[in-house]
Write a protein that binds this DNA or RNA. Sequence first.
RNA 1: GGAGGGAUGGCAGAGUGGUCGAAUGCGGCGGUCUUGAAAACCGUUGAGGCUUCACGGUCUCCGGGGGUUCGAAUCCCUCUCCCUCCGCCA
Length: 422
Amino acid sequence: MLDITFIRENIALVKQGMINKGEKNSEVVDLVLQKDEEWRSVVTQLDRLRAEGNKKAKQIGVLMGQGKKEEAQKLIKETGDNKEEVKELEAKLTTLQAERDDLLYQIPNVPDESVPVGHTEDDNQVFKTWGKPAKDEWLQPHWDIAAEKKWIDFDRGSKVTGAGFPFYVGQMARLQRALINFFLNEAVENGFTEIQAPYFVNEDSARGTGQIPDKEDMMYTIPRDGFFAIPTAEVPVTNFHRDEILAMDELPIYYTAYTPCWRREAGSYGKDVRGLNRLHQFDKVELVKFVHPDTSDSELETLREYAESLLEKLNLPYRTLLMCTGDMGFTQTKKYDLEVWSPGQQRWLEVSSCSNFGSFQARRMQLRYKNEKGKTEMVHTLNGSGLALPRIVASILETYQTEAGDVIVPEVLKPFMGSDKI
RNA sequence: GGAGGGAUGGCAGAGUGGUCGAAUGCGGCGGUCUUGAAAACCGUUGAGGCUUCACGGUCUCCGGGGGUUCGAAUCCCUCUCCCUCCGCCA
């Protein structure tokens, strides 16, 4: 969420940000300010009353200590009416605060000024392209290759769990393990600390990174225990430092974590869900950064460059998109998407999303640091995929297939695969 | 799953109804001393809100939530987490 003081001082900016992100109800900005004013006036009233009550209670204490019971009794009688009023105001304050926060949660993060204004994916800017997308006639989509070699078993996955939960068999399972190892090793060599995280999180964590209330429907739930199956490692890893105040010399902090990810993906259909394009369970190596506010802009660029380097090492053609305001999401100030080329489908597939959240997540999580002057301030958080596996697997199968029907192992994965062919 | 014991400031650890937001020690920061450092000594040192140009004033927070009371870190209820023992177990 945004800082209410920031909103108060930047009304036009926040509203314009909402409009640019495609949020229609920018009048919530006015509503939240109105609520906030009401809230503050009640706080002032309540504080004054409580101060009075505290003073009397203290006096009573002193009198009791001196054994002046009658005088104390007299004072006790006086406190009665005050009490009722305090209770009333407290209830009012709680309500106002809930209403204010509710509105506050509806206001998205303000896009960075370098982000192109636009409404649909057509307005995203191609920031970079790398490699030459293969276009040969004979190229097959990965689902045909995988079926032929019995590498991925979608049918048994459906039987055992449901659609979108495939089995990976034999060399395909090994290829996934190879990718996970490759990605983790690379991340660690680039200064990220490896973390193994819980696969379920509680409600506070889901709220901390903004899945609740914004994207609640994307997650699988374990109602009996109040847990959510993580849709990305971002959730547990970013919440790792929730409710903490970090020392400035601890920053920046870089983490990487491999986890499975679960997403309900309600409403998806058609070519988007074919093969490995969109699954309910998939594997991903995630990257998370906690940084000083002054550095988050440059940290986003190095995060993007790192993610790009993985695709380059795998020798997979890709392009990087700078997402426009309308296509970037609620919590981000700026976001890049990396899309790998799928020769068998002749289309781009998103394999990484690198985002700067500014202090938006940190404020929800009360994740702060002590700055130069000893004042506590919100840190900035960033994250990116490094990388998501299924579409990489798809792209490898399609890119590294030969006309003879083999699939060659990418050079950097050979040490992990123990063979030249899959 | 059963029985019992806990949760206090960065850490350790007092505090069982009344000037307690909290003793004391350690750590941190500043200073004195020193060529420098250490030791010693002195001072300082939680977070957040409201208000104020500022000085300041004031409120809230002793795991979370609720209650009793004029007054709660202290009493009651409840939840969560941790520890010990038993059971089960990868």
